[in-house]
Design a protein around this nucleic acid. Structure first.
Lengths: 189, 189
DNA sequence: TTTGTAAACTAACAACTGTTAGTCTATGTT
DNA sequence: AACATAGACTAACAGTTGTTAGTTTACAAA
């Protein structure tokens, strides 16, 4: 197994820049400059700018897909499954804060892999929805508008990347616990 | 008072395109083509591409600032103030769904007005935080991590633009009611 | 009919874009 | 000592970018 350290360095650098300005506003010369080399040199390691974006987004999307698979296989209540999903988002976001920005904001600039991405995202949302629905049927969850509950939780979880880096002394377990409690039980006393 | 219908048309067209691809990926030729004219003609009505973005973002940011002012002046409980804030977001987003995308994702491409925007956003968040804090002190709101509560609510409200257009038969009052309930009381039965 | 003006047009600019081709250099292996 | 390779470099490309200058057109006011 070959170590692709230089390629990974490029992707890591690009990921940070993509978060700051978005994919379209970052040029290959920006990425090169941040690494102290010339733009043309990047092409010894990567095939195209597109490739960098695809690499960032698809690997994250697959992480979520795999995580969801594990959640679905777990033999726990639906409320507990939601807690596992919160943990999944916190953990992935904590280890790839910058990449989450591209996943959220730059997915539309994927080309060949756009369809695949939309497929992954669609089935992730379906699985999430099904957990909520089962929870409603089992009297674990209130019988409110399913789409609003789904949207509300998912929005918060998808925005974690905007907020996590601000807390340097991050305790992911505690964040998961607190966030789960707020999402599930609200803030009302 | 002069009617600037053509300028408004340009801004409206740009707003839709900015939502689809982001500010940086949209060219003046894209905007012109969508209107059936040439790019150079746009400059009879607007000063620059930057100007379009500034117009979209600052007017929305000021709408939120003004709305928050009204909320703060209202003589109601802190929980009820939160409900007013939910209504504020639902109403602004429902009438300017596309612009909310730029507000959320393209603010970093503001130039002269960036500082002003950050100021507005900062004080909006502070006001929001203070309402939560007073709610905790008055025993209206659970004594959980303030930043997590703030982040959770704000993330959901800021993401409304992604979700609102999907419901064509939108009843803003009902959405406000349901969403408030979920954000405040959670989904637990 | 003449004139003024709003708003479109064509043509062009300088800078910037992603990318390719071909070359040089350092390092480590035979 | 000879060679192979990784990874940098320079130079250049064709296309795209925001924007400007100057011109034409349509229409309403005088």
């Amino acid at each position: 197994m070959k170590l692709e350290t230089r390629k990974e360095e490029i992707i890591k650098t690009a990921t940070i820049l993509f978060k700051e300005k978005g994919y379209s506003a970052v040029t290959m010369r920006d990425i090169a400059k941040a690494m102290g080399i010339k733009a043309a040199s990047l092409y010894n390691h990567i095939n195209s700018k597109q490739d960098i974006l695809t690499n960032i987004i698809i690997s994250l999307a697959e992480e979520f897909t795999n995580g969801m698979k594990t959640v679905l296989l777990s033999n726990v209540s639906n409320i507990e499954k939601l807690e596992l999903i919160v943990a999944l988002h916190v953990n992935i976001t904590a280890t790839n804060t910058h990449g989450m920005a591209s996943l959220n904001n730059d997915w539309m600039h994927l080309e060949e892999q756009l369809e695949y991405y939309l497929e992954l995202r669609g089935s992730y949302e379906n699985n999430f929805r099904n957990i909520l629905q089962e929870g409603v049927q089992n009297n674990e969850i209130i019988n409110s508008n399913l789409e609003i509950m789904l949207f509300s939780m998912l929005s918060t979880l998808r925005s974690l990347y905007l907020w996590i880096p601000k807390k340097e002394d991050l305790n992911t377990e505690e964040l998961t616990k607190n966030l789960s409690h707020i999402l599930i039980n609200g803030i009302n006393k």
